[in-house]
Nucleic acid binder design. Structure first.
Lengths: 226, 226
DNA sequence: AGAGATTGTCATGTTTTTGTAACAATTGGG
DNA sequence: CCCAATTGTTACAAAAACATGACAATCTCT
């Protein structure tokens, strides 16, 4: 990715200007908007690489926008960084119930923000490889978010798809449950490592004939057969 | 790595206690200190696997410690996670000029911290030097966690794989049973040294033609023939 | 609001792994 | 050659790791 497109949604003109200036200097392509409803439309139109979203906005607020984005097929994988003021309910934002990938608290330094943007982009851009992967009757279309087995579509849930992608992407390598949790569920997931097992099981079930391509490496983790 | 050693440098006793409790529960080995100068000495003495560093400290502050650590030959690769309060100059911390690998902002949830620690550890743990080792028909693929003999995969259990890796890594050198127990089973294993024998036997069995490459040095231990 | 889908957790059952013990075989020194 | 120490073999029970099915909570879409 040469110049990542960043959409900034922020109603405070000063902050907006500050951000625009600094992010441009840091090598990002910037688009802005100052209103919640407008924001949704803009994201869908531009499909930016990342969205900076103020929590408090005229029109729809950041939470709603975020939820809405994560709901849409096209925009669900667009990473979002929330901008919150001190004392706002950070917990809910971060909980990932809302799907935000990270957040910063005002007042923040541009530098910190830039680092976070880069980090989020790094994490969420394994989509660099082939957007379509295929092998022996199993096919993954990353962008379409679709999987087919011998031509027949299998409907995977969002989590299942991510998990399978992650396994496939590291085809032939074992990944521990913790690693998978990090990559698929994200940092803010506070749960049980065995959750991975359950999802692997569901995946195998749906993959039918290819079930055994997800190999269990006892005492270590899972590996996609290469 | 069985139990990663974490050194916590934090002057607030409450936070220190909270961290100690939670990290121990998460399976880390914990050491603590509450003063900047002391911290430097402790890191150099213990060479922990990771350091949690409060930004504001009596004595040297976190930034200075971090810089100093990154300067030292022995400590330059020790990952550091900064603990900062909101509103502190986070940018300078993360700027990586200082070498911190990540940071958390108070108040943070122990769970998130643990996940970050694990992520940093994973990133900074060099993947076992050579990730593929091969010699005369015997092949070890570390990342895939796979072993093959003359092209045929032999299924090793997690312990067997670790043991073989350890032997191969120190190819040509004898290792006592105790040494092997430490490295493969971990320090906290309190069992019988003869356990190693059994595993060596199982390994030999599975290695078939290469069985005798694991040599018994009577009265001392085992050695992988080089 | 409500049906259906999704997701994380848990309890249970099954298989694999692992440590140990008992015994056999081997080794090396005297 | 014999003995004692050490190691190899085998078998087994306990523990660990995993698969599976069920369930409740939550989310989604109508």
């Amino acid at each position: 990715m040469s110049k990542p497109n960043v959409l900034i949604v922020e109603d405070d003109r000063d902050i907006l200007q500050l951000l625009t200036y600094n992010l441009k200097a840091a090598g990002f392509e910037i688009a802005t908007c100052q209103d919640g409803y407008e924001a949704l439309a803009e994201v869908r139109r531009q499909l930016p690489d990342i969205v900076l979203l103020d929590l408090l906005l005229p029109g729809l607020d950041g939470l709603e926008i975020c939820k809405e984005l994560k709901r849409g097929q096209e925009t669900k994988n667009t990473p979002v960084i929330m901008i919150t003021a001190r004392g706002e309910e950070v917990d809910r934002v971060v909980g990932l119930e809302l799907g935000a990938d990270d957040y910063v608290v005002k007042p923040f330094s541009p530098r910190e923000l830039i680092l976070r943007i880069k980090a989020v982009l790094r994490r969420s851009t394994p989509h660099d490889a082939e957007s379509v992967w295929q092998e022996d009757g199993l096919r993954l279309e990353m962008e379409a978010h679709r999987a087919t087995v011998d031509g027949d579509e299998v409907s995977l849930t969002a989590t299942e798809f991510k998990l399978l992608s992650e396994l496939v992407r590291n085809k032939g390598k074992v990944q521990t449950r913790d690693q998978l949790l990090d990559k698929v569920w994200g940092y803010h997931f506070n749960g049980y490592a065995r959750t991975v097992d359950t999802h692997v099981r569901r995946l195998r079930q749906k993959l039918s004939r290819h079930a055994d391509r997800i190999e269990t490496i006892r005492g270590v983790g899972y590996r996609f057969r290469g």
